[in-house]
């Protein structure tokens, strides 16, 4: 899942990027508010982490601008101000959730997952397809109750497919969701991941829709 982080503080931004990457997200980090405001159009982000105390432009103005133009990506706001009026203003402007500094990385990840889940209309935190189960928090998957040995990218791909049940995922979208900026993607990278997943789940688990992309097969 691809996340846009807009944070001017080097220490926090750098930490969020490394931390969220380690937790299975693809992260793009923008330091400048104006660049961040434009960056939302650059990739199909699943959620945005937005710092309010940005130089140049207020985080709330960025958010208001997005909402005005109909952008509905879930936004998790980070701020040092914890007074109730500040929080209310943030939520009223269109923030989906709110975290006050200093926050725990695990909490940022959990809230991002909750926001993304809610966006996909899911209530349960586990993704299921027949006997295939994926735990987005624990970063693990099981088939028939047996743990699967998957790499982070394979898990990410499986998560994407599970989230998009019944729909076809274009290959380019998968690339964009799995890789942040500056990460080299070979032209056949996604095919390789799909190939590995099929080997572990069974060849019927993922269907290839020629010229378009991939979708999940019948429940296993």
């Amino acid at each position: 899942m691809r996340i846009l982080v807009i944070e001017d503080d080097t220490l926090i931004g750098d930490g969020l990027k490394s931390g969220l990457t380690a937790l299975g997200f693809a992260v793009d980090w923008v330091r400048d508010g104006r660049q961040g405001q434009a960056a939302i159009d650059a990739a199909p982000y699943d959620a945005v982490v937005l710092d309010l105390g940005l130089p140049g432009i207020d985080g709330l103005d960025i958010l208001a601008g997005w909402r005005r133009t109909g952008r509905s990506e879930p936004v998790l706001v980070l701020t040092a101000r914890d007074a109730l009026p500040d929080r209310l203003t943030g939520l009223d402007t269109g923030a989906d959730d709110y975290l006050v500094k200093p926050f725990a990385l695990a909490e940022v990840a959990a809230r991002l997952r909750a926001l993304i889940r809610r966006r996909h209309g899911q209530m349960a935190n586990r993704l299921k397809h027949g006997t295939l189960e994926l735990d987005p928090v624990g970063r693990s998957a099981t088939l028939n109750g047996q743990p699967l040995d998957l790499t982070a990218r394979e898990l990410g791909l499986l998560e994407l497919l599970l989230n998009a049940r019944g729909r076809i995922l274009p290959k380019t979208l998968i690339e964009e969701k799995l890789y942040g900026w500056g990460q080299e993607v070979e032209s056949n990278t996604i095919e390789v991941h799909v190939h590995h997943l099929r080997r572990k789940l069974g060849s019927e688990a993922i269907r290839t829709v020629r010229g378009i992309g991939y979708t999940l097969g019948e429940p296993l």
């Binding site: 503080d9 080097t10 220490l11 926090i12 750098d14 930490g15 969020l16 490394s18 931390g19 380690a22 937790l23 105390g53 980070l78 040092a80 101000r81 006050v100 500094k101 200093p102 926050f103 725990a104 990385l105 695990a106």
Partner: peptide, 23 residues
């Protein structure tokens, strides 16, 4: 107090990354 929150948040995030990562 607010200004201290930002470096504290940074410290916390970096500490968690150090703990979390296998790399």
């Amino acid at each position: 107090a607010h200004e201290l929150r930002t470096p504290l948040a940074g410290l916390r995030v970096q500490a968690e990354v150090a703990q979390l990562t296998t790399d």
